[in-house]
Design a binder for these strands. Structure first.
Lengths: 225, 225
DNA sequence: TATGCCATACTTCCATACTAGTGAAGCATA
DNA sequence: TATGCTTCACTAGTATGGAAGTATGGCATA
C-alpha cells in the first residue's frame, strides 16, 4: 500500500477551520459579518472549544478578527493589503515569466494552453468558480515552469484577501479581456522572449490597480483602508 | 490623551504566543525540540488552554508542528521554504530598489545611511542581535522609501524561517561583507541609477544561495528538505 | 534470542463550568 | 429632554476533567 494514502483523521477544529475558510473566500460569509463561537458550535453540534480554535486560525489567515469579550467578525477586505499583495505578485511573477521564457518547458506550456481553453469554456458557460480555479492553475503553472512551485504556495497565503475580492469582481469585469492577457503572456513565453513575457505579465497584474478602487467604491461596506 | 495609547491588555494566550515566537526565532528553542502544553503551562503558572492556543498560532506561523495525540515540536528549518522566500524577496526588493532610485526621498536615504553606520558599530562590538535588527530596519526603509511599507509587513511573514537561519549564520559569516553590499545598494539609490540599484539588490539577496546549503550541511539536525 | 501481548505513562483533543469584560436597554434623577 | 446609573444578557477567555490516541518498556511465550 502506498504510505501516502494513510491519512490521520483531521481534528474537529481543523475541519471547522477549512469549512469556514472556504465560506469566507467564496463570500458566503460576507466581510463585516459577526460570527459567534456559540452559534457555530450549536449549528455543527459540537462544543465551543474546537470552533474557538478554528476562529484563531482564521484570524491568523487574516480572514477574521477576534475582539476580546466583544465578538468575532469576518474581516473587511483591506484595500492596502490587496494592493501590497498585488505589488508582490507583479514583482515575483515578472521574474518567473523571464525564467520560463528562457527555459521553455514544452509540457507545461501545453498545459497552460489547455487552461486558457478551459477559461474560454468557463467564460461562455458563465461558470465563475470554474474560471477562477483555472485562472489559479494557470498562474501556478507559471511558477512550476520556472521550477519554483513552492513560491506559488507562499503567494497563496498573501492572496487570501485578493481571492475574496476576485469572487466579487469576476461577476462584474470582462473575463474575455483577462483571457486575452493570459494568451499574450503564453505567446511571449512560447516565443522565448523574456522582455515581452515580463511586460505582458506586469500589464496583466496591473489590471487590478484599476479594478480594486472600482470594487471598493461599489461596495464600501465590504472594504477598509 | 492620545487615543492610540489606550491598549487593551492582551490575552494570556497571545502573550504566550509572542514569547514563544521570539524564543523560536532567536534559536532558544531549537528546531526539532519537543514542547508540551503541560510543561509550558506549569512553567508559566497557568492552565493548559492558553498554551494550547499559543501552539496553534505558532503552527500557523510555520514555527511549530502539532502532531495529534503525539506531541508538539518546533519546526525544522525548511530549506525549500527559505529558498522560495529568498526568491520572492529578490523579485520584490529589486522592484522596490528601482522605484526608490527614481524617487530618491532624501530623508529616508539618510536614515538608511544611519543604519549602515549602526551596522558597523554592531559588527565591531560583535552584537549579533543589534546587527540583525538594524539589517531588518535597512530593508524596511527600502520598502518605505518606495511608499510600500505594507509590502514589508507581508514579507515578514515569509521571513519567519529565514530569520531563524540568520541567527545561526550571522555568527558564522562575514558581516562586514554584508555591510559592503548594503553600502553598494545605497550608493546606487543616491546616484538615482535604477539598473545599478536593482543589480546591487539582487546580488545582495543572492548571497543567501551560497550560505543556506553551507548552514544546512553544518547542522543537518536543524534542517529538513 | 526473537516475537507478540499488554500495562502504563504519556500526548493532544474536546466538553463543560466558570470568570470577567462589554454594551445596550430601562429607569431614576436633574 | 438630557444625563447618569443599574441591571442583565451576551461575549470571549481561562481552568479543569476526562476521552482517545500513541509510544514504550516489561514480560510471557515460542
Amino acid at each position: 500500500m502506498d504510505p501516502a494514502r494513510i491519512v490521520i483523521s483531521p481534528s474537529t477544529a481543523s475541519q471547522v477551520h477549512d469549512w469556514l475558510r472556504k465560506r469566507v473566500q467564496r463570500g458566503d460569509l460576507p466581510p463585516g459579518m459577526r460570527v459567534s463561537e456559540t452559534e457555530v458550535a450549536a449549528a455543527i453540534g459540537i462544543s465551543r472549544q474546537p470552533v474557538r480554535e478554528a476562529f484563531i486560525r482564521l484570524a491568523s489567515d487574516g480572514l477574521a478578527e477576534v475582539r476580546p469579550q466583544r465578538g468575532t467578525y469576518i474581516s473587511r477586505i483591506s484595500v492596502s493589503a490587496v494592493l501590497s499583495a498585488r505589488f508582490i505578485r507583479e514583482a515575483v511573477e515578472a521574474d518567473l515569466a523571464r525564467a520560463v521564457a528562457l527555459a521553455r518547458p514544452a509540457d507545461i506550456l501545453d498545459r497552460m494552453a489547455d487552461e486558457i481553453a478551459c477559461q474560454h469554456r468557463a467564460d461562455h458557460a458563465a461558470k465563475v468558480e470554474d474560471f477562477i480555479e483555472s485562472d489559479d492553475r494557470f498562474h501556478r503553472l507559471l511558477a512550476q515552469a520556472a521550477g519554483q512551485d513552492a513560491v506559488w504556495s507562499d503567494l497563496e497565503r498573501l492572496k487570501a484577501q485578493m481571492n475574496r475580492l476576485r469572487h466579487l469582481s469576476m461577476r462584474v469585469f470582462d473575463r474575455s479581456f483577462t483571457i486575452g492577457q493570459h494568451q499574450a503572456i503564453l505567446d511571449a513565453l512560447c516565443d522565448g522572449n523574456p522582455d515581452a513575457a515580463e511586460t505582458a505579465t506586469r500589464a496583466h497584474l496591473r489590471q487590478m490597480l484599476t479594478e480594486v478602487p472600482q470594487m471598493a467604491a461599489a461596495q464600501p461596506d465590504y472594504f477598509t483602508d
